[in-house]
Design a protein around this nucleic acid. Structure first.
Length: 423
RNA sequence: GGGCAAGUAGCCAAGUGGCCAACGGCAACAGACUGUAAAUCUGUCCUCUUCGGAGUUCGGUGGUUCGAAUCCACCCUUGCCCA
């Protein structure tokens, strides 16, 4: 199966420049995707782009990941309605290092001809003077052409700085540079990148009469229309310190049926046959959620590790299974610490736990709720549990409820856990 | 520099002297139902609260008024048009 066919059946392909298929059929091609260094970790949105590169490499081509040291300074206006904040030099360096490390985990950097490579566009932009840039790159692209881009048009009413306006030209020049110096013929990216990518192919054509190609992937959407990759107000990061493997696992496990069918094609390397089988099995017994489990297992192992996956599964079984107070009591201290690794933990004294009412315990003595009113509201809404049992406003905690003599498990809703430790 | 328009809660957006902590929608959080889904229904959604209330909001600063998101002045920001 060709690279294009692979992306197509997985539902990843969005748009492709004519001739790209033929180019790839001829032999090894170098292609790249740019990654945005706005944080020190990639999130699962960028994971889709990494998958695009992995398939590219599997198909025998040479994947290059460009980390945007220079473009990060400028800021991509695509899909944004407002001007973005500039990143300072050291934040940027820190972010680049984090991202580089993650990329290295997914691509093969030592397989001869088509080994992956990471480049940083700051390397060629740092000694590029403004005058050189506007005469060397700017001369070939008209303002009219740049203004016609959606990313610019959308901002014509609300305003856009010159800096962001130039973004497409800078990204375009990246493509030109890689084409010229590294023989890169293809740039890939999310569908929102089409305009930026095409500026690159245009620059290559006008400046050197060369030919280069573009390919974009589908924007990932959830069936309910909400943003992909966000949960509890935050991004799902690949970095275990930012999103614990447990939470990471849970995110995928919680995917809706419809989403899981799409996600498994995009985020795993399972074959069409394997996936078709899984989907069939899932449809026969949807309540078993085999599809979500297969999806969550596969991604968690590849992003984190087998051990992390096992821990996440164990924790999930205890937290979401039919576990009772007795079972919680059977856990050793180490079990508890393992399961709740990464959940917020609060320390307070035994006296406080025994002597305060439930509201002040949860709001004042621990910071599970930001205020008493908030704690009260949630308790009244029947949203709070201690050791898996719902509490009411009148509930009193007594010392024999402490697991192993020192822990209380507090829960807000089904999925938010907190550990209270008596010291 | 001149003219015109706009700025309201996380976002969109109504309100144009008292009935305004401010309609509605989205997002978010929780509950019910389920499969730790989705869809649906319900509740919460400026802050604090002893749940009776209290305090701080409508770009900013002053002013008019018993009373201002609403009127006035100046300023700031953004867009459009002209120079």
């Amino acid at each position: 199966m060709s690279y294009i066919e692979e992306l197509r059946w997985r539902g990843m392909l969005h748009d492709i420049m004519p001739g790209t298929d033929e180019l790839l059929a001829k032999g090894k091609v170098s292609g790249y995707i740019g990654f945005d260094p706005t944080a020190d970790s990639l999130h699962i949105g960028s994971l889709a782009q990494i998958m695009t590169l992995i398939h590219f490499q599997v198909a025998g081509h040479k994947p290059i990941a460009l980390v945007g040291g220079a473009t990060g300074i400028v800021g991509d206006p695509s899909g944004r309605s407002d001007e973005r904040n500039m990143l300072s030099e050291d934040v940027l360096q820190h972010n680049l290092a984090g991202i580089r490390k993650q990329l290295e985990q997914f691509l093969n950097f030592d397989c001869g001809e088509n080994s992956a490579e990471i480049v940083n566009n700051y390397d060629w932009f740092k000694q590029f003077s403004f005058l050189d840039f506007i005469s060397d790159a700017g001369k070939y692209i008209t303002v009219n052409y740049m203004l016609a881009k959606d990313s610019v048009k959308m901002r014509l009413e609300s305003g856009m700085s010159f800096t962001e306006f130039c973004y497409q030209l800078i990204q375009g020049y990246d493509f030109y540079y890689l084409w010229k110096n590294k023989g890169v013929l293809l740039q890939m990216g999310g569908s929102d990148q089409w305009g930026n990518i095409v500026t690159g192919t245009e620059l290559i054509r006008r400046k050197d009469g060369g030919e280069a190609f573009a390919l974009t992937t589908q924007l990932i959407r959830k069936a309910d229309g909400t943003k992909f990759g966000k949960s509890m107000g935050g991004n799902i990061w690949l970095d275990a310190n930012k999103t614990s493997p447990y939470k990471f696992y849970q995110y995928w496990l919680n995917a809706s049926d419809e989403d899981a069918k799409n996600f498994i094609k995009i985020f795993t390397l399972k074959t069409k046959e394997e996936i078709d089988t899984l989907i069939a099995e899932h449809e026969a017994e949807p309540h078993l959620r085999k599809l979500q489990k297969a999806l969550a297992d596969d991604i968690t192992v590849r992003v984190h590790s087998k051990e992390d996956l096992q821990k996440a599964i164990d924790a999930s079984n205890i937290l979401f299974g039919q576990s009772t107070t007795e079972q919680l009591n059977a856990l050793t201290e180490q079990d508890i610490l393992d399961i709740f690794e990464g959940v917020p933990m609060f320390e307070t004294s035994k006296e406080v736990i025994e002597n305060s009412d439930i509201v002040s315990l949860l709001a004042e003595h621990t910071q599970i709720f930001p205020s008493k009113g908030e704690a009260r509201k949630n308790i009244e809404a029947n949203a709070v549990s201690i050791n898996k049992e719902k509490v009411a406003l009148a509930t009193k905690i007594v010392s024999n409820q402490l697991l192993r003599g020192k822990f209380l498990i507090a829960q807000k809703g089904k999925k938010n856990y907190f550990l209270i430790k008596a010291v």
